[in-house]
Amino acid sequence: MSGNMNLTLKVWRQKNDKATGKLVTYPVKDISPDMSFLEMFDVLNEQLIVKGEEPIAFDHDCREGICGMCSMFINGQPHGPKRGVTTCQLHMRSFKDGDTIVVEPWRAAAFPVIKDLTVDRTAFDRIISKGGFISVNTGNAQDANNIPIPKPDADASFNAAACIGCGACVATCKNSSAMLFVSAKVSQLALLPQGRVEATARVKNMVAQMDEEGFGNCSNTGACEVECPKGISLENIARMNREYFTANIKE
């Protein structure tokens, strides 16, 4: 078919968390620009399987940019060259015939590699379990319209809540800081009256867990905001810093 592309892929292969990994080169042929980046990997994997080689392990599930599972570091950028999309939403029309594409896993001490392009992001879940919630048991709730919430607050809270927990912010940060992720959750809840009750404990506990997981400090480079596929804004980090500051003063 005309318009199809031939590419050279350099993909990180690593047997397991203990093995050392390396980049392995694979030529792929006849890639349609309509394919998604992951479908291109499907094609490559199919070739590897039929040749009796082990396919490349990579995380993915929804393939529509919402579950946050896909996580490829493409030519030095998490989720590839296009802004505002996840790896699964990246299409091959963003590349040119003859391109060489380097694909690596997220790199961060807190995200150890499990195999090939798959990493362990359970640190994020542990941070949430320390405070990323409102303590309301099932059945405790009052009528949903009893507390009016100004639309701008509700919208800002929603914008923060749109984070998909992919970890691109950590992967792109030279300090491997998780500030954007953590601040998005802190902000979502801090902006709502329901979330104010536990605001002090929340920010302190979540930050403490973040540090314990081995994420680095934030030095305000802003790279995370640029690479975040969901447009989570740096304002959230500023808000979290204020929350954190107030929480410590309260002590």
């Binding site: 709730a141 009052q142 949903a144 509700a154 709502l192």
Partner: peptide, 13 residues
Amino acid sequence: IDQCVAQGVPLAR
């Protein structure tokens, strides 16, 4: 809906 709003689910307003 009551439960979700109490949990901080930012439904449209």
